[in-house]
Write a protein that binds this DNA or RNA. Structure first.
Lengths: 119, 119
DNA sequence: CCGCATCCACAGCGATACTG
DNA sequence: CAGTATCGCTGTGGATGCGG
């Protein structure tokens, strides 16, 4: 007896402290190694990066390719299925940009940044 | 020096343990009193409900109308600006529905529920 | 009726050290 | 290089009680 509306599902999959950045990186750079991602996202720890990547992988958004070499090499990329997120991300981005505008009008430039931190 | 892509902003505003349900309720029911919301969302505590409502209010997604009566009465509703979320929520919902389908194909009906809990 | 204040439990995340 | 394991802090959310 699940409820009809499933927009929460999309949220669950996209939300995560580092998932948005990871997705953006992979979408713009294509395939990336683990270490490249770490360099591209300076504040993430190995633990968190691994965890978030695994979750995205489990949802078939990204692909994990392991090369059995010494030293090891692992490459991450967006799956074909994952590409289908793009329009949604675009829509969310557009809304986000408009929303920041809107907050500026409501509270002024100063308040906006703080407003975004609240939730 | 903020980054260009702002789809994370949309996430921040929509995410919250009870925000999705609240939005759905208000969108389908129109104006609702605090107590009605509480009844409609059985597991939420007053504290959490208040908090999430305030955040949505701060972002101008919902409107809070206070009637200075005894006993008090407070009504919540979606603002005109908040209505502009609808297409986005619809898009997210569509993607969510499709994604659940996709997970079923990957892991079977059994695995899907657990998959959704992971992230 | 609506909401705030306080206290507490637990999960999330970071830091660090260790492994194949 | 690409992780895993462990520990400790911190923040979020639940439970409860008070107040306008």
């Amino acid at each position: 007896m699940t409820t009809y509306c499933k927009f929460e599902t999309a949220l669950d999959i996209l939300v995560g402290k580092w998932k948005p950045v990871i997705l953006l990186r992979l979408l713009s750079n294509g395939t990336m190694r683990f270490s490249e991602l770490q360099k591209a996202i300076p504040d993430v720890t190995k633990k968190m990066l691994t965890q978030q990547l695994r979750e995205l992988e489990y949802h078939d958004i990204i692909h994990r390719e392991v090369y059995r070499e010494i030293p090891p090499k692992v490459e991450y990329s967006i799956t074909a299925y994952g590409q289908r997120l793009t329009p949604l991300l675009q829509a969310m981005n557009d809304w986000g940009v408009a929303h920041i505008e809107h907050l500026n009008e409501l509270y002024g430039e100063a308040g906006t940044e703080e407003a975004l931190k609240r939730s």
